[in-house]
């Protein structure tokens, strides 16, 4: 029981950055802008958050800087793919390299620690929050314990991430903004005919994507860790992309997909080299590769069919 709760707790921890990045991609791709630059935006956000928190001493200024840098990168992607009607995949690849190169270069030049940012103190980070009555309710078997160990004790960004799931659902499916966002991703010409700017709708979607990627980065560098380390996102942006496809571009399913991939990550961390009954020693690499293998199988159409938004990846050219 104890180990199971620990495993689930670790699952939630691994799932949070995936979930934020996945929802970020959801906004962008639902509006027709394919984004394989989630990784780069997350990395840029993580670096900016840690650097700003280290210099100013404030976690809040840190998260603000993280979001700003991530939105900045998102706007470059937007400018290339919306205004210049460039290839969105190429632009996303470019964002990943610019962020990875610039973060390591600036980190090294500013802090002289080989690309790391200085170790952050607890007042410069988002610390685990103790939810009300956690200790008292923890005495109750099972439910109380789950409350204390699993639900309580995460940092603010983690709660925001899970809160973003219903919010995203509501924004996309119950607001005018969401309707337009989905419409420009399916049939931009129809939206244009109705006199609504396709570009502006897509730019707003891209900005939402930037904000969430910035939060995901900040969660990594000033939430669960105490500073930025070179390449600290370690492919999470691509797992988030896989989760997005796995969830077939739906917010609630995105949460489950991220929890599933987070669970695989948790098993990988928890059972490294442990000799389990029946299965033996888990090949660590298999667990690492499993999210990608599952996504390929899904894409091949063997477990349901993942159909992207119809206008995804196609630049919109207004008729003249």
């Amino acid at each position: 029981m104890e180990t199971l709760v620990q495993l689930l707790d670790l699952t939630v921890r691994s799932a949070v950055p995936l979930l934020l990045a996945c929802l970020a991609g959801l906004y962008s791709e639902r509006s027709g802008i394919v984004d394989i630059g989630l990784e780069g935006k997350m990395l840029g956000g993580a670096f900016a958050a840690a650097a700003a928190a280290a210099v100013t001493g404030s976690a809040w200024l840190g998260i603000g800087a993280g979001i700003m840098v991530s939105v900045g990168l998102a706007l470059i992607h937007g400018f290339a793919s919306i205004t210049n009607r460039g290839n969105q995949i190429v632009s996303g690849v470019a964002i990943n390299f610019i962020a990875a190169g610039a973060a390591a270069l600036l980190g090294n030049a500013w802090f002289n620690q080989g690309g790391r940012t200085p170790q952050l103190g607890s007042e410069q980070r988002f610390n685990p929050l103790e939810l009300p009555l956690a200790e008292t309710l923890g005495q109750i078997p099972i439910i109380g314990m789950l409350y204390e160990e699993l639900i309580s004790g995460h940092n603010l960004i983690a709660y925001v991430a899970f809160l973003m799931v219903p919010i995203t659902w509501w924004v996309l499916f119950r607001t005018r903004f969401g309707l337009r966002l989905r419409a420009v991703g399916e049939n931009p010409a129809a939206v244009d005919t109705a006199g609504i700017s396709v570009s502006w709708a897509r730019y707003r979607a891209v900005i939402c994507c930037g904000i969430l990627c910035g939060l995901a980065g900040a969660y990594l560098s000033i939430g669960v860790s105490a500073g930025f380390v070179k390449d600290m996102t370690a492919g999470r942006g691509f797992i988030a992309l896989a989760a997005l496809i796995f969830a077939k571009w739906r917010p609630v399913a995105a949460m489950w997909a991220c929890l599933l991939f987070g669970f695989l990550g948790a098993i990988e961390i928890r059972y490294q080299g442990v000799d389990l009954p029946v299965v033996g020693v888990l090949p660590l690499q298999l667990m690492q590769a499993l999210p990608y293998i599952l996504t390929v199988i899904l894409l091949a159409g063997f477990i349901g069919k993942a159909i992207p938004p119809r206008a995804a990846g196609i630049p919109y050219t207004k008729e003249r």
């Binding site: 470059i76 400018f79 290339a80 793919s81 210049n84 460039g86 290839n87 969105q88 190429v90 632009s91 690849v93 470019a94 964002i95 990943n96 390299f97 610019i98 962020a99 990875a100 190169g101 610039a102 270069l105």
Partner: peptide, 13 residues
């Protein structure tokens, strides 16, 4: 970073 910028300007833009 230069590689990223080249991809951005020669490719996407």
């Amino acid at each position: 970073m230069i590689q990223g910028l080249v991809i951005l300007f020669a490719g996407a833009m």
